[in-house]
Computed example of a mutant assay.
Amino acid sequence: MRRRIPNEVGIAAVVLLVAAVLSIISPNFRTLENAQVLLLNGAVIAFLALGQTFVLLTGGIDLSTGSNIALTGMVAALTTLVAPWWVAVLAALAVGILVGVVNGSLIYYLKLPPFIVTFATFGVAASIPLILTGASSVNVGDRFFAIIGRSSVFGIPMPVLLVAVAAIAFSILLRFTATGVHVYAVGGNAETSRLAGVRSGRVIVLAYALSGVCAAMGGLIVTSRLMVGYPSAGSGNELFYSIAAAVVGGVSLFGGIGSIGGALLGAVLIATVSNGMNVVGVQSYWQPLVIGVIILVGVVLDTHRRSLSLGSLFKHFGKGTAVDAAPRQGAPTA
């Protein structure tokens, strides 16, 4: 029996190939300083991709992640003016969770399309920081807040360590807990999972809440690195990068398929491509085009894979009906 090669292996190979090509094109790409910049910038993309993974696995999508970065980052900056840095962290995480819970609740309990709901909260979350500050930036009031984005442990930047811890925790959640099984079940077949007793509402709300937490972590990292809260933070390509990273990493847009490891590798690939284009000197307006092509290729591959899976499934059931009365040799019987 042949063993299927995991999708993560192919993605890892692509990452190594892209990095090798960029290293040949530009010696500056393979410097230690550039590697640190790549990892720091990739940390935000990685967090957003991890959160987006949970949402996509349930068959949804979260368009509010970019503005959630601005909202949570601004909340953290404002909180440091009146409270210690750790209180600001908790406040930002609480706001991120709140945005996610609102998204998930509206989607499940009011049966609204995820695209519409998260697009609406995208606008709301983007406007609140502008309203609170009059579209002005806010300097962080506690210098210890820099620990999140500027410190390092044994030479490893803190944002990278935070991503690693989150990826391990999320992998355990998806692979070794009943909640993880339910996430895949809801995305694979919502009706079947409902009949099996899975509480879909809780699963969907949890998925969007985790996406909100990850966006809040992105907001904390951005604000900590700059030590300034910007109301326009996250308004760039972060949203598209998160979706591209997850899809390229093998997470299906149709739900029920994907892994944390794949999404993390997808984030590394997107960060490598973006960083490489900057180092090589490609104009910034070319980058959305390249990322758009990557998303398109990922969607095409995902759709093709899904078609093949459905075709194999129908073929399997077709064969099964012909041998119901006489089970194949070696097949388990009831």
Rank of each mutant, 00 (worst) to 15 (best):
G292M: 00
D142Q: 08
K315A: 10
T303F: 13
A46S: 09
P129Q: 06
V95A: 06
A13K: 12
V89Q: 08
I221M: 09
S171V: 15
F170W: 14
V124T: 08
R225F: 07
L162G: 01
A91S: 06
L132V: 10
T72V: 05
A245V: 04
I45K: 13
V138D: 06
L195G: 08
V247P: 11
R305K: 11
M277S: 08
T65C: 09
L206R: 07
A169I: 08
A46G: 02
T121F: 08
V273R: 00
P327R: 14
I148A: 06
P327H: 14
I11S: 15
P288A: 10
T192S: 11
R2S: 09
I295K: 12
A70S: 09
L132I: 07
A185H: 02
I291H: 06
L161P: 13
F29D: 02
V9E: 03
L313H: 11
A244Q: 13
Y285Q: 12
E191K: 14
V15E: 07
G311I: 07
V273F: 00
Q52K: 02
T31I: 09
V101D: 05
L90V: 12
A77Y: 01
R30G: 14
S224I: 07
G141F: 00
C214V: 03
F54H: 14
F144W: 09
A43V: 01
I221A: 05
S200H: 04
A125V: 12
F115R: 00
S151Q: 13
I128T: 04
A76T: 05
V297I: 11
I11T: 15
M158N: 06
R150T: 05
G281V: 02
V282M: 05
A245M: 02
I257C: 11
V82G: 07
G180E: 09
M217L: 14
G123K: 04
L265D: 13
A216C: 02
I24G: 13
R225S: 10
S136T: 14
I168H: 00
R202I: 05
V117G: 12
S312D: 15
V222F: 05
H304R: 06
T79E: 03
G292D: 03
A178G: 14
A233C: 09
V213R: 09
A233S: 08
V228F: 13
N103R: 14
I204T: 12
A185G: 06
P129L: 01
G187A: 11
A215S: 04
G236W: 00
P332F: 11
G249E: 04
A164C: 10
S252P: 05
A19Q: 01
S242G: 08
G149F: 01
Y241K: 13
R328P: 15
A164D: 03
I147Y: 13
F54V: 10
G298E: 06
A263H: 12
L206G: 10
I147V: 09
N68D: 10
